[in-house]
Design a protein around this nucleic acid. Sequence first.
DNA 1: CCCTAACCGAGACGGTACGTCGGGTCTTACA
DNA 2: TGTAAGACCCGACGTACCGTCTCGGTTAGGG
Lengths: 197, 197, 197, 197
Amino acid sequence: MTNAGTSRRRSIGAQRNPESQQAILKAAEAILMEDGLAGFSIEAVARRAHAGKPTIYRWWPSRAALLLDVYHHQKHVERVPDTGSLETDIIAFLTALFGYWRDGNAGAIFRSVIAEAQTDVKATDALRAYVLDRFSQSAEFVRRAQARGEAADWVSPELAIELLAGFAWNRLLTSRLDDNPEELQRLARQISLGLKG
Amino acid sequence: MTNAGTSRRRSIGAQRNPESQQAILKAAEAILMEDGLAGFSIEAVARRAHAGKPTIYRWWPSRAALLLDVYHHQKHVERVPDTGSLETDIIAFLTALFGYWRDGNAGAIFRSVIAEAQTDVKATDALRAYVLDRFSQSAEFVRRAQARGEAADWVSPELAIELLAGFAWNRLLTSRLDDNPEELQRLARQISLGLKG
Amino acid sequence: MTNAGTSRRRSIGAQRNPESQQAILKAAEAILMEDGLAGFSIEAVARRAHAGKPTIYRWWPSRAALLLDVYHHQKHVERVPDTGSLETDIIAFLTALFGYWRDGNAGAIFRSVIAEAQTDVKATDALRAYVLDRFSQSAEFVRRAQARGEAADWVSPELAIELLAGFAWNRLLTSRLDDNPEELQRLARQISLGLKG
Amino acid sequence: MTNAGTSRRRSIGAQRNPESQQAILKAAEAILMEDGLAGFSIEAVARRAHAGKPTIYRWWPSRAALLLDVYHHQKHVERVPDTGSLETDIIAFLTALFGYWRDGNAGAIFRSVIAEAQTDVKATDALRAYVLDRFSQSAEFVRRAQARGEAADWVSPELAIELLAGFAWNRLLTSRLDDNPEELQRLARQISLGLKG
DNA sequence: CCCTAACCGAGACGGTACGTCGGGTCTTACA
DNA sequence: TGTAAGACCCGACGTACCGTCTCGGTTAGGG
């Protein structure tokens, strides 16, 4: 970034200019933070990044693609807690996820990605692939609980995670991310012990 | 609907014309079914309903409002199963919900409502209010289980429903509504007995 | 023009707004004067007229159509001189035409129309129709000369005018409109007496 | 042209590659023939010629320059008839010019040059210089008529040619090049004998 | 005989304009 | 006052070219 802001970005030959790529992603993220999905247009991103629209379309075929790329460029939270106990792992998992979504831009961006996925089929596919991958990663802590003998053998770790994630998605999508430790605790207890407690 | 399609709808004086209202809702629903949220625009609805755009804006302040109204005009599924057993109630609840979303237009419409709620704050509020109401209604069958002594006193019926609903939302929003009875059964067992089984 | 410049132009119902039409034509003319054909774009006209592009496309199907309309809205010169003598009529005709093109915007606009007609077939057709009409009008003074017995019966008035107009076009299109009275006089003499004089 | 079409053209060192030059001119001409001025863009020429855009810009500073070069590379018609009689010389001159423009690509290309000259000042200058030169060359046959005593001494040969050329331009620019021998004959008679015939 | 300079094709860059679609507002003509 | 209709301004869409720039490779000619 030798001349950032001072001079125009130029072509660096018949190859992608990483400076432009970064500028576009940063601009897209900033717009998403400030104005939300409503203000997110290729036009606006190009304007803010001082990039030409064709430059964006050259590398991202659609709004959804750019959105997903922005999301993937976010710092990711650690989603595999390891507190030694299933119940506290569950609490840690949800607390971390809620915090990640609440504190930074990740929540707003992820909401946008989900919304876009309801319109754009390619975004749906990409989102599905992404979440399935995430689920199987996060399921690790449930598997560990099973290995410890803390969880029953017949439970599906992925299904358990999906339950937690679904709960979190619902809170995210209805703007109810406020942290309520008691509630999370109760939820963790319900899940680990079951309704029949 | 005396002359639907044959002659132009006109004003019926200083009051809302229910024919127009119906025509607009039907057109909106049809567009949502056929083209999804992507093709859903006030312009398109007006065109299809042979209505003027101001007529729509007069009665529905925004795209989100119309969308929600369309969703509310759908036939609703019975969400309070009563099979006599908690576990089968859970299965019945999810099976009914999945079927409702999968078989008719309700799923596509609800996806659109959720997507819209990520852009439009009023839609978010409306959606939140709607789901909280639904949750407390559906929680009835968990309360009944508690009354029967089948569920522990300390569980929160609303939280339990939220878990199930969140799971269902996730499946809906990632286009994974295919019914898998075994999976649902396992899920019901996990929830009722808990991971510690 | 009750509120020109002070407030936005609005729709006046389901009909063409003449204020918009005038604003667009004025803007188009101004751009043509200031920047020539090179700066003449629908985008620029819309910007300057504070009009939407669709408003322009609604009423003028193409750049060429707008250009021709601008030309037609120019004040027209009297092209049928009547000095009583063929030779001085010819001089008057050319002098008036040169002056018309040289002094106002008409020349620049007409050059643009001709240029556009080399690209756009509809503009070619419109231009041809226009010039044929003009030629037959202007031919009147030659016909009068024939009536007076000053011109031979076998001459074609239209062909004579075409000769004069072609000469003028050539001068216009190569930026040689500077008035040279002697030259025009000689030309008039050549045409009226013939090369064999 | 040892390997035209089979292998890529490369640099031949620090000097202009005549193969590239030829390929560009041929491509430009072909585009002008097939799509007219509307399809004529540097981009299209480069694509068709398998040339880099900078190669074109290196040698032709503007679209107009390339256009003029294409025109100059056309075979030129003989414009100095010598039938022994002024009247038939005029007919021969116009017949040859019309045929030249009508039969090959020269007409379309010259129309493009004229159009371009209405936008680009350098093209205007080049065109003016070109036509003045042409006029003085073509004026030769009128001078010969004067020498034979067939034309009056006071007539200006250049002005006479300009009259004929202007007539031809007008026909070219309004797509009216269809040959009409009778009309040309009448025109020749009018010019040689004068309107007062 | 190597080095430098200029050329070559290729294609990315920041931009402008294209012609279209939809947004939300406004007015008319009619009931 | 409500309705169908449709014009208004605005702004975004995705595409085509603009003229510039850099790249990697090539070849000729001077040192």
